[in-house]
Design a protein around this nucleic acid. Structure first.
Length: 510
RNA sequence: CGCGGGGUGGAGGAGUAGUACCUCGGGGGGCUCAUAACCCCCAGGCGCCGGUGCAAUUCCGGCCCCCGCAACCA
């Protein structure tokens, strides 16, 4: 059985999860489920990034001990899994001394042994109020936004990682697609960056400035900066650096790192550089998602337009949120969220579309055939074909197998999840049209046998929809299998359908 | 000249060198199994200016506008 290792980023715990985190996790989950369903041994990792000066300052501001301060937000990220039905196999967090630190420190050690760690001077803008370095972004009009003070340009000694040394090799891996970056435009962006040559990166800070972090092995006076601390989660979670590296040996390299475009540079430059230095394999693929905006604007706490995934789930259910995030928002481009768009998508495609379809078919089967439909003979099935265009006639199962499935598989394999979803909902549209064409609700009065064929095809269609949607809408998919009495049955055994009475799959919201 | 992505009917999206597609909304018709759902038809569009081509929304150049990134916001 082949393995498949997929990760989300580890999320920074400076605030509870918002829809942007949810979308990355949901997309990764859909891919994880898809590969699991196609028979691979999948390891799906998510987690949180909890170290750093920002977090320490936030905890101090709240008058809390930092180690307990982060737990709350960590737990809210962990709760994304039950809320959104994420199938992650593990959850890693950076302050975990037992599970994470050994891996991070071993990795550091490897880089050091490779001669790629050296002491250097870091020059930066230091804000006295923050007692830390700030970036240009923290400034408003040259002054620190929080303290209204002008930061000072100061120097301090810390460790650097010789990233520059690996520019050519990283570039080669990306160009040759040994390290595949999707979509193409992101790949180009990174390659353009490589063209300028990568600079060495600051890799640690004096621990007096940042005590909240992982100590540099062999030099307690320094704390690891984010790179080695956070990026190493992808291997520490597999046991790298621990006594038992079985999982690491089995699952590394990652088949896919799902990331947002905002952290592309770290994942396309620094992370591969570190892995090369340590003599480890590079991930096969970086999948770079767009950002989800709210009402056309970037989500921000200042604007007060942060969309809360938990609220949405509570109101609409996990599958509705998963639906929106995977279909109504493009995977690779920026998307937009508004309450109105969400409701519209919910009403249109889930309530009126999928929910209504399942309802009308199951009702007819119950009313006309006492809830039970035996599979008609093949030649009978051909007598109620699906009309495609003007002249082409195919049976429903044939259409699903030869037209829908290949399109679904192709787009899923290319991670064009919204297009795969399009293919499935396109099938739904065909099936609704098929109902209208044969009018089983009339046909039953004149030709019961043909009605049986028509309804059997429609039930087969419903179950097929459930099969296709399993990675996207796992709960709904299970419900549909249950309604048609084929829970746990492979496609080859979708012969007799025994239909149950059921509640609306997607209740209408007022 | 820091880097990059965009501008497609009322709205949101897809797409292509040659009849431009989908969803929602608007107008009309049909059906009644279904969660006032479903099916069919109609109106309306490729930011601006040049260039290359038999042909450009699609390729090239310029302009206008919007938006990201710029080394710890998915």
């Amino acid at each position: 059985m082949s393995k498949f290792y997929i990760t989300t980023p580890i999320y920074y715990v400076n605030a509870p999860p918002h829809l942007g985190h949810a979308i990355t996790s949901v997309l990764a989950d859909i891919v994880a489920r898809y590969h699991r369903l196609s028979g691979k041994e999948v390891f799906f990792l998510t987690g949180t990034d909890e170290h750093g000066a920002k977090i320490l300052r936030a905890s101090e501001k709240a008058g809390r001990e930092v180690s307990s301060f982060v737990v709350e937000i960590r737990e809210s990220f962990r709760n994304l899994s039950p809320a959104l039905n994420l199938s992650n196999d593990d959850f890693i967090y950076t302050p975990d001394k037992k599970r994470h630190w050994p891996g991070a420190q071993k990795l550091w050690q490897k880089l050091k042994e490779a001669g790629d760690i050296y002491k250097g001077k870091y020059k930066g803008l230091y804000c006295v109020g923050h007692e830390a370095f700030v970036t240009e972004k923290d400034l408003v009009g040259g002054k620190c936004a929080d303290h209204d003070e002008k930061p000072q340009l100061i120097e301090e000694e810390n460790y650097f990682f010789r990233l520059s040394k690996y520019t050519a090799e990283i570039k080669r891996r990306i160009e040759s697609k040994e390290l595949l970056i999707l979509p193409e435009s992101r790949r180009n962006e990174v390659l353009a960056l490589m063209g300028e040559g990568l600079k060495d990166v600051s890799f640690s800070r004096p621990s007096q400035d940042i005590s909240w972090g992982i100590p540099v092995p062999g030099d307690e006076s320094q704390t690891m900066y984010v790179w080695c601390d956070a990026l190493s989660n992808y291997i520490s979670a597999l046991g790298y650096g621990s006594e038992d590296e079985t999982k690491f040996l089995k699952f590394w390299p990652a088949d896919i790192h799902f990331i947002g475009k905002d952290i592309l540079r770290f994942h396309a430059a620094i992370w591969p550089g570190m892995l090369l230095s340590a003599g480890l394999l590079l991930p096969r693929e970086l999948v770079v998602t767009g950002m989800i905006q709210v009402g056309g604007r970037k989500m921000s706490k200042t604007l007060g337009n942060v969309a809360d995934p938990f609220e949405l789930v509570e109101h609409f259910g996990a599958d509705a949120v998963r639906y929106y995030l995977s279909r109504e928002v493009p995977v690779f481009d920026d998307g937009d969220f508004t309450q109105e768009k969400f409701s519209q998508a919910y009403e249109g495609n889930l309530v009126n579309g999928l929910g209504n379809y399942v309802q009308r078919i199951s009702t007819m089967v119950r009313n006309y055939f006492d809830s039970r439909l035996e599979k008609p003979a093949e030649e009978e099935i051909l007598k109620a074909p699906l009309k495609k265009g003007e002249v082409e006639y195919v049976s429903v199962p044939y259409f699903i197998e030869k037209i829908v499935f290949p399109e679904y598989k192709k787009t899923m394999d290319n991670l064009e999840l919204n297009r795969a979803s399009d293919a499935v909902f396109g099938l739904l549209k065909e099936l609704d049209g098929y109902v209208q064409h044969y009018e089983p609700f009339h046909l039953i009065e004149t030709d019961k046998e043909k009605t049986r064929v028509v309804l059997w095809n429609l039930a087969y269609g419903a179950v097929s929809l459930a099969w296709f949607l399993a990675p996207f809408l796992p709960q709904t998919s299970d419900k549909i299998f249950d309604i048609f009495g084929v829970v746990g049955k492979p496609q080859s055994e979708w012969n007799t359908f025994v239909v149950k009475e059921h509640k609306a799959l997607f209740p209408r919201k007022l």
